[in-house]
Design a protein around this nucleic acid. Sequence first.
RNA 1: GUGGUUGUAGCUCAGCUGGUUAGAGCGCUGGAUUGUGGUUCCAGAGGUCGCCGGUUCGAACCCGGUCUUCCACCCCA
Length: 458
Amino acid sequence: MAQKPSIPKGTRDFTPSEVVKRNYIFDIVKKHFQTFGFQPIETPSFENSDTLMGKYGDEGDRLIFKILNSGDFLRKVDDNLYNSKDSNKITSSISEKALRYDLTVPFARYVVMHQNELDFPFKRYQIQPVWRADRPQKGRFREFYQCDADVVGSDSLLQEVELIQLYDTVFTDLKLDGVTIKLNNRKILAGIAEVIGAKDVLIDFTVALDKLDKIGEEGVKKEMLSKGISEHAIAKASPLFNLSGSNADQLERLEELLKDSEEGSKGISELRFIMETITSLGLQSAKLVIDVTLARGLNYYTGAIFEVAAPEGVSMGSIGGGGRYDDLTGIFGLKDVSGVGISFGLDRIYLVLEELELFPEAIDRSLDVLFLNFGPKEGLAALKLTTVLRKQGIKADLYPSDAKLNKQFKYANNRNVPYVVLLGEEELGNSSFIVKNMKSGEQQTYGLEETQKFIDSL
RNA sequence: GUGGUUGUAGCUCAGCUGGUUAGAGCGCUGGAUUGUGGUUCCAGAGGUCGCCGGUUCGAACCCGGUCUUCCACCCCA
């Protein structure tokens, strides 16, 4: 009575073909992280709860997977607390570890703990799974990988410029042309809130503004009103709702709007520097645009905000994002360390590449040559040849049993093997082997002494 | 966390207002073909109808719960 096995909600098995394709993306991302001078680190899959809790807001705390203490953990709970049935309070006394929720907070912890051995600016990349107790949707899982690259210890805007180039380089190498890198600056958002007199509700203001392309101008205004932002303030902000034209035009109009806000003006000049530097350097395939509605959820961004949108026509949310956070390590007691980073949404990039058929054609070819098995003696001769091929880096295998040729051929077919070698009794007798091209069906006979010639033809 | 949606063979899905042995295509196994796959023909195997309970003479179908899928919120990658 074996029960049917299953895996938890929001988790996945990866098939060989999926792993190969995911590694293709990983490898390209990693390669460019390295050419841009980033170094890899890894952190544990779980952290102390107090490292994570409270860093992502109430909503985030709810989504953190907590790990139950070991042993007879309930015995240690205070009776009053236990009877109160207050899950939030009891959690902290029965769970002191939690699964990593993202890579940024563990990285901040890492920087603080290793501050004396790090050379700043420290450029690190990290590709590891994270876990969220979220309700799954398409492209949203409870276990997924994040690929992050961050620089800490430099407040130079050249870092932002480099990160934009890094996005462009990676997506160009992935053959994913036409992605849009959206750029904004938290200081501009803060400046706008200041100018319209909504400074105290900055977060509600930005969250609403972020939804502009989803719920439209009226929807945003409605949400702002419901959050207590006055009609007067909304009217003042209304130029934002249809800010169009070239990047330079938008900058000019924003500058005018923000001329009375010191912070806003600083944001404008930062944005302008990044835009101008990128313009003079040029991008390979990505488009860089200003998008003042870009807010993103995480409130630790203090300067630049990035988001990468998939090429037009692909229905997929953002495939990457990031920004600058001036004081990330402050929560762990290390002041004045500025950081800026970006992240690649691996799972979504995978879905986009799949949809646009951008994976290399032969990517899931797991075998170049299959030797058919005609029996013990022939098999041994084939195994010798297999070894020769493998030594030269060719993916070769011998079918393990002398099953019917029909079956062996079918196996070769299903595994997409391009070449099948037949070395049977007759061939063994005259020291030869037959190579069959599975695509064209053509067969060619080689003498054993011509093995190298066969290898060279592959 | 809120509201909805989905689950039938390995896969994709039919299955009428509840009715007797639950079907198809693909895949799989065997044969036509004992040294030739991808095409064709023939035959065969494979199902706790997600799970638990209820209603009923009778449940894949109706009801409740639960798990899962996908979607919209919330939030976010």
